[in-house]
């Protein structure tokens, strides 16, 4: 479980574009590639859905 939480945190850090060197070394030292791919795709999907939802919300609010 912990490995997933850390991966999600690292994906979020990559979205922001800021990551500490310590976390980077941890990810590249012990991380599993597949976990990052899945976490990355998942977070992208969540991001897209939230943008979509936000636009829907604004449109609803205006009309």
């Amino acid at each position: 479980m912990r490995i997933w939480v850390l991966a999600v945190w690292s994906v979020m850090a990559s979205f922001l574009g800021v990551q500490s060197n310590a976390n980077r070394e941890r990810d590249f030292g012990h991380g599993r590639f597949s976990v990052f791919v899945v976490a990355g795709l998942l977070m992208t999907l969540i991001f897209l859905l939230s943008v979509y939802g936000l636009v829907q919300l604004v449109m609803m609010y205006v009309h």
């Binding site: 922001l16 574009g17 800021v18 990551q19 500490s20 060197n21």
Partner: peptide, 10 residues
């Protein structure tokens, strides 16, 4: 690096 400052200015 200074993660706090970097997060701040992002």
């Amino acid at each position: 690096e200074n993660t706090t400052v970097e997060v701040f200015w992002t």
